[in-house]
Amino acid sequence: MVELQARSLRVKIAQQWGSLGLPFLLVAVVILFSFLSPVFRTQFNFLSILRFASFIAISAVGMAFCIMAGEFDISVGSMMALVGVLGASFVPVIGGFAAVLTTIAISSFLGFVNGIFITKLKIPAFITTLGMMFVFRSLAYIYTDNVSVYIDNDFWLYMGNGRVLGIHFPIILMVLCFVGGYLMLRKTPFGRYVVAVGTNAKAAELSGIHVDRIKIAVFVMVGFFVGISSVVISANMGVANPGLLGQGYEFQVITAVVLGGTLLGGGNGSLGGALLAALILGSLRNGMNLMQVSSYWQQVVTGSVLIFAVAINRLRYTLMGQEA
């Protein structure tokens, strides 16, 4: 009886990770840095944490769909660089608004290409996107000849730096993307199909879902959100650099989704968790920057957080008595 109680307690803890564990972790990180650094606890800084988190979180929406569908995309960082330099270079020709739309369109198309490779040629996603990661990045270099593209268009810059009622525009975009993503996941058939495909692709196929189309669609979604992030981040930096834009970005985005409680390998996941995880990553990065932790240490920390996140997920599902 006692054993049973202990078991049900463990199961409960495992189940409550999303609603208890992550907020706890976030609060812990915030409290820790508030003690360590006086600058950290200012209102101004909290806004900049939110803004930094939004850079990760917007793409995390697309990535969450992708991972829930049982796939994976590590080309997002390079994709961001490629579409960023392409879009920014179009600004003088077609104007800011059209250039932003073009950027998003191009990155959606690149996601489409990824999806075609993975579904039609049956090449595993991680290796396809690994190849694409290098192809996109080198195309960005080739296109620009390794010269940064400067951005001096008001509309484009507004995407990264503008404010509405004192709140940065990227933060508002982040909220919009999450609401949109949430509605899509929970209130449309598409969302259910994505989860079904990720849980059991074969069963989904047999019950009449076009698995390939769903998979291609999630890769297009990844591209779409990466396009938005690309505009936001390059606007924030004021420049699109083929080498620096999106360097290590795939890492942060995947970490956010996985730490948020979505299982690698597919199945139902959590968008809210991904948002919280992005906030945790943002606070961590911001705090470490304020503490002047060297970027080399930060690399070590980010890598460890990813492994930690996957291990935690694994543990949760073992506790719940399921194979992860």
Binding site: I74, Q299, T302, I307, V310
Partner: peptide, 17 residues
């Protein structure tokens, strides 16, 4: 029980760091 891809992706960053 972390999959090899994620493990070595993370280790790539950690070891470089």
């Amino acid at each position: 029980g972390v999959n090899p891809l994620i493990t070595t992706l993370a280790m790539m960053t950690i070891i470089r760091g």
